[in-house]
Design a protein around this nucleic acid. Structure first.
Length: 426
RNA sequence: GUGGGCGUAGCUCAGCGGUAGAGCAUGAGGUUGUGAUCCUUAUGUUCGUGGGUUCAAAUCCCACCGUUCACCCCA
């Protein structure tokens, strides 16, 4: 008999982690909502051409990391490797950003065929945000601010640093790329193999190479700054001024570039040391040319994506052994001494669930000796046990026993029991 | 795609040439309707898969698969 297991790079989120995911997702949704962003739900499958055009067909993501699928009718389809292209497509298709501002967010799984490692899975979850129709630098700052607020609300701000850079407008970036390519090419004998390869495919990416020899060549390379127009410089300066006004610390990194083709002007990355090699928790920037590239009218746009898997990983790393059993603190475990009492108890449990909003009511459906059921109540982390047997039924009461604190058990009417529990945990 | 580490009970691991162990977890007991401790006892391992060497392999060799970390890539 074959034993099945999850496909390489795909993983299960188990119950104890699931609760943490929910908490973090809720925090993120709340944060986005308070900034006036609206939720969008996007399909996981899109036309392959959308990503070739949007992300760029020279990028590693499109070139060798896409999950392509057979569509039966011949159109090449892909599991989305990122969300921005889809979001722009949807905005165009439904006129969401036509002559107006749109602030949007979405969440969901993305797929990239990479070698899995810590913080990098073939299916991973992102929360992405895209804002259309605002060319002002204040928007760039707002996007960063959203991240900052979220990380602060999760008490992670001390563990994440913001790196920021500008890569100028599309023509400026092209001019710079050319100059950089020239410089690197004349030093090609000192470059490492990977950088040599990227010299053709994506020269900008060489800027953040970790290779020591390559770094020396880069140090002598022309700087992006000298290729920027006054407008571009001004835009970036204003972004930074906004950040200062918001008291958001940042680190200027002239070598910060993004791997996707569509970025222009401001690019930023929130990074942590706590996750090893995959330390980027959130990243984004401006992409003023993308809407046009995908067939829309010229529309300024900017956004970012948070890697939820990494955010959860970081949260676990930082908030170790904290609120352990907190989730179960309002658990009431119902125990019946015999079958008839069990049938008597089940509708009462339902009534409790209606009357006590913040309480979890579990009925022991396994039965058995009372001692056994009480042991299960304890192991489930119950705060209270409710016990019903023949005598309780006869008297029309329920026995309520505290499991976590000292105190006597009491035989109470339903109403008295509800009052007692309300007073304890609402 | 490249390199290193690791794969033995549900979990954490020991064993490293003579046909499998511990701790935790789980089940049942320790009399009559009450948990955590304690005691007794039970369940559970085709030692990742497939080859090879050997009288004999969880133990040595090879391949594959998985996993993990790093390169790379990026959220």
């Amino acid at each position: 008999m074959r034993k099945f297991q999850s496909v390489r790079g795909m993983r299960d989120i188990l119950p104890h982690e699931g609760e943490m995911w929910s908490r973090i997702e809720d925090a993120a949704k709340h944060c986005l909502c308070t900034f006036g962003y609206h939720e969008l739900r996007l399909p996981i499958i899109e036309s392959t051409a959308l990503f070739e055009r949007g992300v760029g067909d020279g990028t590693d993501i499109v070139e060798k990391e896409m999950f392509n699928i057979d569509s039966r009718d011949g159109e090449p389809l892909s599991l989305r490797p990122e969300g921005t292209a889809s979001c722009v497509r949807a905005a165009l298709q439904h006129g969401l950003a036509f002559n107006r501002v749109a602030r949007l967010w979405y969440q969901g799984p993305m797929f990239r065929y990479e070698r899995p490692q810590k913080g990098r899975y073939r299916q991973f979850e992102q929360i992405g945000t895209e804002a259309f129709g605002i060319s002002k630098p204040a928007l760039d700052a707002e996007l960063i601010d959203i991240n900052h607020q979220l990380f602060t609300s999760l008490a992670l701000d001390g563990h994440i640093t913001l790196r920021i850079n500008t890569i100028g407008s599309l023509p400026e970036r092209r001019a710079y790329t050319e100059a950089l390519q020239k410089h690197l090419d004349s030093n090609r004998d000192t470059l490492d193999a990977d950088s040599l390869r990227r010299l053709q495919t994506n020269p900008l990416r060489i800027l953040d190479s970790k290779h020591a020899e390559t770094r020396k060549v880069i140090a002598r390379a022309p700087k992006m700054h000298s290729f920027l127009s006054d407008d571009s410089k001004h835009h970036f300066d204003q972004v930074l001024e906004c950040l200062q006004a918001l008291s958001i610390g940042f680190e200027l990194d002239p070598y910060l570039v993004r791997g996707l083709d569509y970025y222009t002007h401001t690019v930023f990355e929130f990074e942590t040391e706590a996750l090893g090699a995959q330390g980027t928790v959130s990243a984004g920037g401006r992409y003023d040319g993308l809407v046009e590239t995908l067939g829309g009218r010229p529309t300024p746009a900017a956004g970012f994506a948070i890697g939820l898997d990494r955010l959860v990983l970081l949260y676990q790393a930082v908030h170790t052994e904290t609120e352990e059993v907190a989730a179960c603190s309002n658990l009431v475990y119902c125990v019946a001494a015999d079958e008839a009492s069990l049938r008597h108890l089940m509708p009462i449990a339902n009534q409790l669930r209606r009357d006590l909003a913040h309480t979890t009511v579990v009925v022991d459906t396994l039965g058995g000796k009372l001692a056994t059921q009480m042991r299960r109540a304890d192991r489930e982390g119950a705060r209270w046990a409710i016990i019903v047997g023949e005598s309780e039924r006869a008297e029309g009461v329920l026995t309520l026993k505290p499991m976590r604190e000292v105190g006597e058990q009491a035989r109470l009417t339903y109403d008295a029991l509800v009052l007692r529990l309300l007073e304890d945990h609402g």
